[in-house]
Design a protein around this nucleic acid. Structure first.
Lengths: 344, 344
DNA sequence: CCGATCGGTTCCAACGTTGTAACCGCCCTG
DNA sequence: CAGGGCGGTTACAACGTTGGAACCGATCGG
């Protein structure tokens, strides 16, 4: 099932068939229809490997995320897939498991010789590692600002994490909470974590509250388990220190925290208000439903794919850009306590 | 960065380098080390497209699932990735969105000329469509028994859905529940849904209960939204008909159902016990934690990859097999009401 | 000491595709 | 009517890799 077979059947040369299937204009209408018929009769499909070998293009891009079982990444993958197929790309999804080697391998290994480009959500890999790669291979980073000595080393798309954290923390303060904790501080080497802590502190100051390091819970991962453990830790503090609200740096952390409160027999938000980040569907269906900062995932996906496509198309090196996607705060029961009926 | 570059640097022929990187034994130790050094100095990586073009093998397999935002599939993807890399394969994950055309395209299009094989979790595509594909392309199906006139048309890996449904329903009956509902009936063309209904009915009979069709709620998708709507529907039944337990055919349905009960101010499991299927982490962290049938996802992944690898290796057509993976019932608060402390 | 054997290496062709350049009628222009 | 231009088509080479055959020097049996 190759161009040769189609060519024989249509009675033309291989190259003419190639011209037809690629849609180049210099083909007469009569030959075009004849070739098209042969194509569909034989069920011909172009061979991506051969195409890639000859042109250097495969029409394939990869989305590499740390962990697919994280709803945020799964939902993002969904959007990236939709956006990419609108641009004529096929998306392959890879799970890096937060392994720096794996993250890098994607860009250099499989990437360089099979894929046209990579959208990478880095967790461990450092800007310095990525700098040489991004120079010669289309690469877009998600969710982390990646500077090397103060200059950008790759395109990246992200939300304003500082503002997002500020917004949600200010919301908690506006509800009258005075001992606001944070869960998700100091995740190893995570710029996202640092930025959210920054916004958290800004909002505390803005509300006239002081930052109490005892209420800033460290985690290793942004997952449910670490949220549960961190919240248990906060609950074991002396009563006068214990938080009356927590801002969790991810929805999974928040879900874990909520469960810890449930185990302890505490009321949400009566005793402790809980808020997260990610806008995952899981947060919406949680009981009580969970206040969350919702990043515009469709916008993130769209910006990332557009940017990657531009870089793939242009042979010249383009200047690296930073794109900010919108986000908004979705207030739900876990902070304001107002019972709602979901309207799906 | 090709074999040629490495060959020049090492002072040998291209073919010898090829022999070294593929690990064929007939290479002297001295040349091998010399070539290896050149390889690492230049950072050479084989070109999968060229390799695939020449050999017909790419070392790539795809896992195609309907929806990555479904925790079950995301967690499964995780396991498949691990198992495949142990077999030397790279996994590409594709989202079919339950579109039959897309499901088929994977096997015939990208599949046939880029991938060595596909693990497909079909949602809409019918056995008849897949039969011609499976004959000439390594294909393993997950989660659905696919018969065509009573004979198997492809390998498949699944749990015993009838037994799983029977187990969990029997558990609800053993708790003394007499009006047990089912959510997830009649999902269009879903064999899984039929099998779970079958097991549900078997267990009812076994417990001396009668099957009341009013308590069997239809859904279009196995998602949270449909679970919520279905449960609202069951709650709107006349009081004497209303269920005192529901078996949901997926954890997402169960989470949605739980939220509907929460909205209605009902207690779980006091007023209504809830159980699901999938063993997702979300179910564990739900409040109250959700009783679920846990399919052994690692076993499913392992069986699927092993089976696919065998089929890829063998040039001869192998007989199609059916593999059953273990499952077990994990009883949690949403049915027995016993408060637990998670021990992660 | 000659021919066979063998480990190690090289040469050649081919996988399916596309870019470049050449080609071939044909119509138009001078 | 010769020369130029042009739309449509084709021949050829090349992308990076590997299977198979050929090759080569050295060891070995007779």
């Amino acid at each position: 099932m190759t161009l040769k077979d189609v060519a024989e059947r249509a009675g033309v040369s291989i190259k003419t068939v190639s011209n037809v299937v690629r849609g180049v204009p210099q083909v007469s209408e009569s030959t075009r229809t004849r070739v098209m018929r042969a194509v569909s009769e034989l069920g011909y499909r172009p061979n991506p490997s051969a195409r890639r070998l000859r042109t250097g293009r495969s029409g394939l891009i990869a989305l590499a995320v740390p962990d697919l079982a994280t709803p945020y990444f799964a939902e993002l993958a969904h959007h990236v897939g939709a956006e990419a197929s609108a641009h004529g790309f096929t998306v392959l999804i890879e799970e890096t498991l937060g392994d720096a080697k794996e993250e890098l391998r994607l860009a250099t290994g499989v990437g360089a010789s099979l894929l046209d480009g990579v959208i990478l959500s880095p967790l461990r890999v450092s800007p310095a590692d990525l700098a040489p790669v991004a120079d010669e291979f289309p690469l877009v980073l998600l969710g982390e600002r990646s500077y090397e000595h103060d200059h950008v080393v790759a395109d990246h798309v992200l939300i304003d994490n500082v503002a997002a954290a500020r917004d949600v923390t200010a919301h908690l303060a506006a509800l009258g909470r005075t001992r606001i904790g944070a869960i998700g501080v100091d995740q190893p080497q995570s710029a996202t974590s640092r930025q959210r802590l920054e916004g958290f502190q800004q909002a505390l100051h803005g509300a006239g509250l002081t930052y109490d390091p005892r209420l800033a819970a460290r985690v290793k991962e942004f997952d449910r388990r670490d949220g549960l453990l961190a919240m248990r830790g906060l609950l074991s503090l002396p009563a006068e220190v214990r938080p009356d609200a927590v801002f969790c740096f991810s929805d999974m952390l928040a879900v874990g925290a909520q469960h810890a409160l449930y185990e302890a027999g505490l009321n949400v938000p009566g005793d402790v208000a809980v808020a997260g980040v990610d806008g995952s569907e899981e947060a919406l269906y949680s009981t009580p439903s969970l206040t969350s900062v919702v990043p515009d995932k469709a916008a993130i996906a769209s910006l990332a794919v557009k940017c990657l496509a531009a870089r793939i198309r242009s042979r010249e090196p383009l200047p690296f850009e930073e794109y900010l996607a919108p986000h908004w705060l979705e207030v739900r029961e876990s902070t304001d306590g107002v019972r709602r009926r979901l309207s799906p």
